[in-house]
């Protein structure tokens, strides 16, 4: 009798706990970890979407920047926290390259995407005082003269990967000069301290519009609405299509193994936030495009990006380890 009673009681308790656990997410405030510093692209994305997502969730998200080691510090923090959905990571494309660059053992495979929010494009920019009027000019000049200075943000960064594409397709090499990121690189490009730099559309769009920089081509298959006069790279060199779509992106992640219904709740709160007019305004002005992928679609997006970027870095000689060591499939031509 006593045993049955305890049995019933424990089942009841279990049900109560289970129900409260399911029904109440989120029942307390969430932590949001931003993998890059204040004022950067990832930070702006996080601070633009979070206040709207908070309303949809009915809980606060406490944001903190934990920059360092290309975001590997913040990724480690997330992976070391419980898989309960209370810790969110606001990140960019970087974890795709951690393993081949030897930065960390972690990758997107340790994360569960909540939402791929905003995508960007990369524009090949030159200083307007250089003689390169078109992409062909640049490629021909680089073939003839190996001394063109190209700004870069370090091995594995977007400009590096874009340079790797150009090397792969045209067999051209540049004299790479490293800057602390897109912004400082763009500054040096405007000052004429480097001649060319592949820059994120968000960084370069205002400089191109004002004539401070000249955009030669956008690394996309279609022209972007922000720069209707700058050709898409495939209009000039169709070979680039094998690497595209490729570009920076910002997303929200939780630790892998977070319960499906929690992921669902978060995904729907963030997806809904993307349709808010204030967020749309931010996306438009920041030179990005809404992506909005969640669930399996987002996982597929990340895998495609990982394969393109890590093989490009490897083939350009920048990788410490081969992507094959991690079973990253080679992109289909």
């Amino acid at each position: 009798m006593k045993r049955t009673f305890i049995g019933i009681l424990s089942v009841l308790l279990l049900v109560v706990f289970a129900v409260s656990a399911f029904a109440a997410f989120p029942e307390k405030s969430l932590q949001g970890v931003i993998m890059w510093g204040a004022g950067g692209g990832t930070d702006n994305f996080a601070r633009a979407i979070t206040p709207i997502a908070e309303k949809n969730l009915g809980q606060n998200i406490v944001l903190q920047n934990k920059p360092g080691a290309s975001g590997a510090v913040a990724t480690t923090v997330l992976v070391n926290s419980p898989a309960d959905g209370y810790t969110l990571l606001y990140g960019a494309e970087n974890p795709a390259n951690y393993r081949v660059l030897g930065l960390s053992e972690l990758s997107f495979h340790d994360l569960q995407p909540i939402l791929i929010g905003v995508e960007g494009a990369v524009v090949i920019c030159v200083n307007p005082e250089t003689p390169y009027q078109t992409m062909e000019d640049l490629v021909e000049a680089a073939k003839a003269d190996k001394k063109i200075k190209m700004g870069n943000s370090g091995v594995g960064g977007l400009p590096y990967v874009a340079g790797a594409m150009m090397k792969g397709i045209h067999g051209i090499d540049f004299n790479y000069i490293q800057f602390d990121g897109d912004g400082p690189g763009a500054t040096a490009l405007m000052g004429g301290h480097v001649a060319v730099m592949p820059l994120a559309l968000s960084t370069s769009v205002e400089y191109i519009r004002s004539g401070r920089l000249r955009g030669l081509a956008v690394l996309t298959t279609k022209r972007v609405p922000q720069l209707p006069d700058v050709p898409a790279i495939t209009e000039i060199y169709p070979e680039y299509a094998q690497f595209l779509p490729w570009g920076p992106f910002y997303g929200v992640f939780v630790k892998k193994g977070t319960p499906d219904d929690v992921v669902e709740t978060l995904s729907s709160a963030f997806s809904k936030a993307m349709d808010d007019p204030r967020f749309e305004e931010y996306v438009k002005n920041s030179g990005g495009f809404k992506n909005g992928a969640t669930g399996a679609e987002a996982v597929q997006f990340l895998e495609k990006f990982e394969s393109t970027a890590s093989w490009l870095i490897y083939n350009a000689g920048g990788a410490k380890k081969s992507p094959a060591d991690f079973n990253i499939p080679e992109p289909k031509k």
Partner: peptide, 11 residues
């Protein structure tokens, strides 16, 4: 940016 402005040379 977040407030919908476009910092840059055109600002």
């Amino acid at each position: 940016y977040i407030h919908g402005l476009k910092p840059g040379p055109m600002l």
